[in-house]
Amino acid sequence: MPVEVKNEVLLSIQNLHVWFELRRWGFGHAGYVQAVDGVSFDLRQGEAIGIVGESGCGKTTLMKTILGLCQPTRGEISFKGIELSTKGSREMKFYRSQVGYVQQDPYGALPPFMNVRRILEEPMIINGMKSQAEREQRIRSVLEEVKMTPVENFVTKFPHMLSGGQQQRVVIARAMILEPKLIVADEPVSMLDASVRVEILRLLRRLQASHDLAVIYITHDLSTVRYFSERIFVMYAGKLVEKAKVNELLRDPRHPYTHALLTATSDPDAENAATFKDVPPGEPPSLINPPLGCRFHPRCHHVIERLCDVKEPPDFEVEPEHFTACWLYR
């Protein structure tokens, strides 16, 4: 993939496979769940990307592997040019301080027995920030950044005393507290009401711009991703099937799966009630024995016999920086 010269690559993922071995029975071997299967991309400093896919497509596993919570089976992840697997535990700890994580369910992500100060203080203590005054200062500035003011009113609160939107702000503040270079946000707004959703997305976008953060935004909702990221990667059954700039992907989707996702996403429009949607039949495949060839072929309208069902499509570059893994563009 061509890399722009002006921005250095922060995170580079090459041919990443994350497979989970199934439980063995006796001496037998039951196979693997191929959760992430050959994913490659580069993320530049200060860039926001969206990874879109349905549940079970492996996007959470991809995210966990980036966070260093899962071990890759094959392939490599390098951060600022250094590969993760070569890092020792001390370097890994430093890496984790460079990567913030915004969870999906804010209430589940915050320990119920800690107040906001304690929640925000803990990462700093773990990473050796000894001075109490310095920590207090940092807590104050982070909370101000996520618009939890006046700060004094919030630091003593426990998670259950906050609204959903405020909880998500605390989660974001915690992700930001060590001044990371990269934020991984896993469906950060899917648990929130529509009116709060936009507020949180704007906050994330503002933080991204002001700190020159790289952000990986993982979601199943195409309509929010366009307000947030510069590039979108569409994931299906463990593979990235299409990678493109946001506007290009929305204007001119190439992969049949991307096309289906776009068709299925509704805008509020009274005309919708009168029409049926063209949705591909069936459900995403099991990742234990994914179909041969293109993984989307059993549901695809445009399937090419003896090609799509036999041979896996490589990435075709249909436009500059627009890649799609589909035989239609061979």
């Binding site: 529509a194 009116s195 709060v196 959703r197 936009v198 507020e199 704007r202 909702d221 195409l222 309509s223 929010t224 366009r226 307000y227 929305l250 776009l262 996403t265 805008d267 509020p268």
Partner: peptide
């Protein structure tokens, strides 16, 4: 406040 896939209005919040 609804983010739209088609059309360019920025969503607002309440």
């Amino acid at each position: 406040s609804v983010p739209r896939l088609r059309g360019d209005q920025e969503p607002e919040f309440i």
